[in-house]
């Protein structure tokens, strides 16, 4: 049987499903983070209107949640190793790979908080929403470490290359965003800066005949 040759049968299907959805979830979360980083005044995707960037950011995040849910449920349901359901959200609750799965639980907890506050965004102040939303920057590296530590596949071959690729993309995007933030002028200095800019343009005081 073809499936048997590849090691997939009724006893391992769940296990494989969990690994596959895990990889897809990581890719989706990476895309969501990259799109989120891109949402600034200057940030645009060529050919896409602005609202599409936030729209994609939002819809992909919901898709990622679906994949994470399947990823977690299949891992828990699979009988090959014993992972209790609580381990999905409580760090170190799993007897199997406590550290690796603990990272996954931490990342999932943060992701839940970020998504929940975003769904309730209309009822929150911008400060609260933003403070929680910034945690996404912490959640992604934890999810990445979870992938690398929990799965030996991720540490070899093209899967490893993929993992490194996502990390590089995120680092590059964060650097771009930080550089943009560094160019931000403090509130109190904005007017003065613009003032000298526009006065320089064509404002040299010309003398009038009195």
């Amino acid at each position: 049987m073809l499936a048997n040759v590849r090691g997939i049968d009724s006893t391992t299907a769940l296990w494989y499903a969990s690994r596959a959805t895990g990889v897809v979830a990581l890719l989706l979360l990476t895309a969501v983070l990259l799109l989120g980083i891109l949402v600034t005044r200057q940030g645009r995707l060529p050919g896409l209107p602005r609202f599409a960037v936030t729209g994609l950011h939002r819809n992909l995040s919901l898709l990622a949640v679906a994949f994470v849910a399947v990823h977690v449920l299949t891992a828990v349901t699979d009988g090959y190793v014993n992972i209790p359901l609580t381990a999905a959200v409580v760090p170190l609750a799993s007897p199997y790979e406590p550290l690796a799965l603990g990272l996954g639980a931490v990342s999932l907890d943060i992701t839940i908080a970020v998504i929940a506050t975003s769904l309730l965004r209309r009822h929150l102040s911008r400060r609260v929403w933003r403070a929680v939303h910034l945690l996404a920057y912490a959640s992604w590296p934890v999810a990445w470490l979870h992938s690398i530590t929990a799965s030996s596949d991720m540490r070899h071959g093209w899967m490893f290359a993929l993992a490194i690729g996502t990390a590089l993309a995120v680092v590059a995007a964060v650097i771009w965003r930080l550089a943009a933030a560094a160019r931000d002028v403090p509130r109190a200095e904005r007017v003065g800066l613009l003032m000298s800019a526009v006065h320089g343009a064509h404002g040299r005081e010309r003398t009038t005949r009195r």
């Binding site: 904005r190 007017v191 613009l194 003032m195 800019a197 526009v198 006065h199 343009a201 064509h202 404002g203 005081e205 010309r206 003398t207 009038t208 005949r209």
Partner: peptide
């Protein structure tokens, strides 16, 4: 932020020759 400095610059220009 954008309008007032520009208005000030334009007025400075109008105040000149």
């Amino acid at each position: 932020l954008n309008g007032l400095p520009r208005m000030a610059a334009a007025l400075a220009e109008l105040a000149g020759a």
